[in-house]
């Protein structure tokens, strides 16, 4: 632009480039470099220290043969599907209710969203206590006279993941609600007027017109909730620490324990590579969609 620009290309805009060094290093070294490192070392027999003794897919064979890993994958699948379904449907219903010119709307919204401000550790500890089989809800309801009342999710191997699910959904729904409420508010008022003139009931307008229009918001909420699900770790640690046995294990905890407790880096890297692949499967179509949409505009 101006005559004062240096001729050498990397000197142009020099202070901006200096200022962007942390960003450049983070994107190249951490996000790309560290991920590649992990994928590469998942093919080695590294134990407590990384070695370059390549063993092909041996770590993966062991991973897929491990019952603990299979439980972890099954758990995250159950947790993931139900969290997405519940967070988005309950979140949307609450948002639609709040969008009816409610008095004290901000009070309701504040109550629905506060769990999201708390950490997963706090959430896990609280629900561990509420769901405690000997002193929690089960005992309280029994004392009310329902002596055969059974609500012991947390100490049963088959149901423990649903206990974690209850806590996780409680924490995240407010977030989905806030996003979807913003989406609802962005819908043109004319649509509501038109549907009222035509005498279409409100629920039908939601399903046939409004929800399809909010596709973008739904996808954003879905992607953010889903990427949080893959990271699920703290909640399990605080609530059950993976127990009873390893019945409530999840992939992130599997990786952690092979990294820092059982000193088998290769195994941990193979497991985290599988997590990475899962995320890519979620993300690449989304990025493609976003990119494609922008191209059309």
């Amino acid at each position: 632009m101006s005559a004062g620009q240096p001729k050498v290309f990397w000197l142009r805009n020099f202070p901006a480039k200096i200022a962007a060094i942390p960003m450049i290093l983070t994107s190249l070294v951490v996000f790309i470099g560290c991920s590649i490192w992990t994928v590469v070392y998942s093919f080695t027999s590294s134990r407590s220290l990384p070695t370059t003794d390549f063993v092909g897919f041996q770590q993966y064979e062991r991973l897929f043969g491990s019952s603990r890993w299979n439980i972890a994958v099954e758990n995250i699948a159950i947790y993931g599907v139900f969290t997405i379904v519940f967070a988005l449907t309950i979140g949307f219903i609450l948002a639609a209710f709040l969008d009816q010119k409610i008095r004290f709307e901000s009070v309701f919204r504040t109550i629905y969203l506060y769990p999201y401000a708390m950490s997963f550790i706090v959430t896990g500890v609280v629900w561990q206590w509420v769901l405690n089989p000997t002193l929690g809800i089960q005992e309280t309801v029994r004392q009310l006279g329902f002596e055969n009342f059974e609500f012991d999710l947390i100490s049963n191997r088959d149901t423990v993941i649903y206990a974690i699910l209850i806590a996780g959904v409680w924490q995240i729904t407010g977030f989905a609600m806030v996003l979807l409420l913003a989406g609802l508010r962005a819908v043109d008022n004319q649509i509501w007027k038109a549907s009222r003139v035509d005498g279409i009931p409100a629920w039908k307008t939601y399903i046939q017109v409004v929800i399809p229009m909010m596709r973008g918001v739904f996808v954003t909420a879905l992607v953010i909730v889903a990427s949080g699900i893959v990271k699920l770790y703290d909640l399990v640690v605080a609530m059950t620490n993976g127990g009873p046995g390893n019945a409530s294990d999840v992939p992130a905890r599997y990786v952690y324990s092979w990294l820092f407790e059982r000193a088998n880096l290769g195994q941990a890297m193979a497991a985290s590579t599988m997590m990475l692949i899962t995320v890519l499967i979620i993300l690449i179509p989304w990025f493609y969609m976003e990119y494609g949409r922008k191209n059309k505009n």
């Binding site: 996000f31 992990t38 992939p251 990786v255 985290s272 995320v279």
Partner: peptide
């Protein structure tokens, strides 16, 4: 979006 475990 990359899980932290991958880069830990």
């Amino acid at each position: 979006f990359i899980p932290y475990q991958v880069m830990l």
